[in-house]
């Protein structure tokens, strides 16, 4: 729903056709890059924040994604949407950002000498932010592939076909990753609940 809304907004921002935009990007045109950024940065940023759970690191990922777009665009064949292609670039650059975000979170927990946010209940009037943090910390325990697949499929509600294009894997593999991710997340959340 939200994605549909965002995409409508983004598309209305820019009159250029995708072909013009892509050829501009291939030529290294800054205006084309600006248009592309205007149209797609929110999708990339939202994905990066959901995936990484750290606004600063996510911003670095957005920066890196668009920075490498001008060279990566040569590989764009036009058989998928430009947004999927750009998200694919983000996925390719995501691994070391994820590592640094996970390390940072772990370090902060140690430094504060406090347990990670507890599994809150509605009774404790847990905020949405806290709930999101709980899931982010649980996601830290997954493999990168599972995490990416879970965020794209479950959090961003993309089809497994689209996710397969973004991550460059088969649909079946994506579904399997999501399945295992959900299974592991449930186990982790149950453990946290019991541990309290």
């Amino acid at each position: 729903m939200m994605q549909a809304l965002l995409s409508t907004t983004h598309e209305s921002l820019e009159d250029r056709s995708v072909d013009t935009l892509v050829s501009g990007l291939r030529a290294g045109d800054r205006e084309a890059l600006r248009s592309c950024y205007a149209a797609h940065h929110q999708s990339v940023r939202a994905f990066a924040r959901r995936l990484i759970g750290d606004a600063d690191v996510a911003e670095d990922l957005v920066h890196e994604t668009f920075l490498s777009l001008l060279s990566a665009i040569r590989n764009y064949r036009g058989d998928n949407t430009l947004r999927s292609f750009i998200l694919g670039i983000a996925v390719q650059h995501t691994r070391h950002h994820l590592r640094s975000a996970v390390r940072r979170r772990a370090m902060m927990v140690r430094a504060e000498d406090a347990p990670p946010p507890s599994n809150p209940t509605p009774e404790t009037s847990a905020s949405r932010k806290q709930l999101a943090e709980v899931l982010t910390r649980a996601l830290d325990k997954l493999s990168d592939d599972q995490r990416i697949a879970f965020v794209l499929c479950e959090v961003e509600e993309r089809t497994s076909r689209e996710v397969a294009v973004i991550v460059g894997a088969k649909e079946e593999a994506v579904r399997a990753r999501v399945f295992h991710a959900k299974k592991k997340l449930r186990e982790l959340l149950n453990e946290q609940g019991e541990g309290r």
Partner: peptide, 18 residues
């Protein structure tokens, strides 16, 4: 005392980054 399930947490993460 119902704990928020995975769906609730997923929705929270989806909405949090808007």
């Amino acid at each position: 005392m119902s704990k928020p399930n995975l769906d609730t947490l997923t929705r929270a993460l989806r909405a949090e980054v808007q």
